[in-house]
Design a protein around this nucleic acid. Structure first.
Lengths: 201, 201
DNA sequence: CGAAATTCTAGAACGAAATTCTAATCGCTC
DNA sequence: GAGCGATTAGAATTTCGTTCTAGAATTTCG
């Protein structure tokens, strides 16, 4: 019984499973989603889903990566269409932060931080995702500096820190304490960035 | 069969379980720790452990709270002994950040963010813990401002943001990508705080 | 003091889920 | 059209958390 580990001959069945996984997880949350649920949604058996992915965790990782790829595309599109660097930064913040305490992308991150896969390949993929956001934000900041809108000595570092700051706020939103809403996080982060980047007399 | 939900008549058996839990979890990580393991360490049956805690998640929460209580005590002691505000801040950063990718306190947080208990009591406890750190850091910053060491308009806000920034760095350390070590996190955060607080001509 | 109620405790039983195994079935190639 | 690897469903296995059962210990209070 061949159990595939590489993904060379993947017949897009894989993609179908991922789609199903994304749907179900969006509905009931990744932590409550059983392999069975995904299989049912994709119209196949649970054993068969595992035939493709090997273990449940792999489905989570791949779903996160897919979900981040989507988010990245959206991000690049929306940022490119921003009328100003200030707008671009604002859009980035809004796109980065979770939509609420049950945001799929962030809940997936939470799952994977709780049970981190240690293989180099996955870690590298994570790194790429994170880097995409940092770079996008750094570019926007740089544009604002050239523009005169912002003041910033080292856009890359500032962007990296801003992403970490957003991670922290995202955590709070995920935790779901009263008052720690998306709106609160967005405005807190924007305020912090304003303090950091504002050109003051 | 009475199943206790309140904790009024807890005969310190509870404390013994928590101690066992902390030990085992420190050894193999909270996510790999079975109720059975904790019971074995505490010299009792698995069913009996659940008799006290109701569900495994509760053990995690209580272990985290215990672990944070310890950390809080340590924190207040070490900060009180700091020779200067600058030192106090530095100590706080070192104490807050994870000791590595398998830091128990942080791994417990990761577990609980992945599967957040929604009862108000637990959320309130979390809030208290977080507030302890923010307050400690704010106090240190304030002392530094009075001192002339730091410049800061709003110490409380700065402290809060610094905690969120540290959360973000902590996440990276937990994820365990190469290079994202505790040492890296500590120096990155200290640098960020220096940029934020430094009194410049 | 002693009986009734309550609390503890171990261990078996149960249930839910992931993972693995078994046996077909399909879609090719030669 | 026989053969062979890739797919597939579904059953069996395993691992755990949780619940249940039956006593033992302890406390309460008449």
């Amino acid at each position: 019984m061949p159990r595939r580990t590489d993904d060379a001959p993947r017949p897009s069945q894989r993609a179908a499973v991922l789609k199903a996984a994304m749907e179900v997880m969006a509905e009931k949350g990744p932590e409550k989603t059983r392999v069975q649920d995904i299989a049912a949604r994709a119209g196949m058996s649970a054993g068969h889903v595992l035939y493709y992915f090997g273990k449940r965790d792999r489905i989570l990782v791949d779903t996160l990566l897919e979900s981040e790829a989507d988010a990245g595309t959206q991000r690049d599109r929306r940022v490119a269409a921003a009328p100003s660097p200030l707008d671009a930064v604002e859009r980035l913040v809004r796109l980065y932060l979770p939509s609420g305490s049950s945001d799929l992308r962030w809940k997936l991150w939470a799952q994977l931080v709780a049970r981190p896969p240690q293989d180099a390949e996955t870690l590298a993929a994570y790194d790429g995702v994170l880097d995409g956001w940092t770079t996008a934000l750094a570019d926007a900041i740089r544009a604002g500096v050239d523009d005169g809108t912002f003041t910033c000595r080292d856009p890359r570092t500032t962007a990296y820190r801003a992403c970490r700051l957003m991670d922290g706020y995202a955590l709070e939103v995920l935790l779901g304490a009263p008052g720690r809403t998306r709106a609160w996080a967005v405005s807190s982060v924007l305020e912090a960035l304003d303090d950091e980047l504002a050109t003051r007399p």
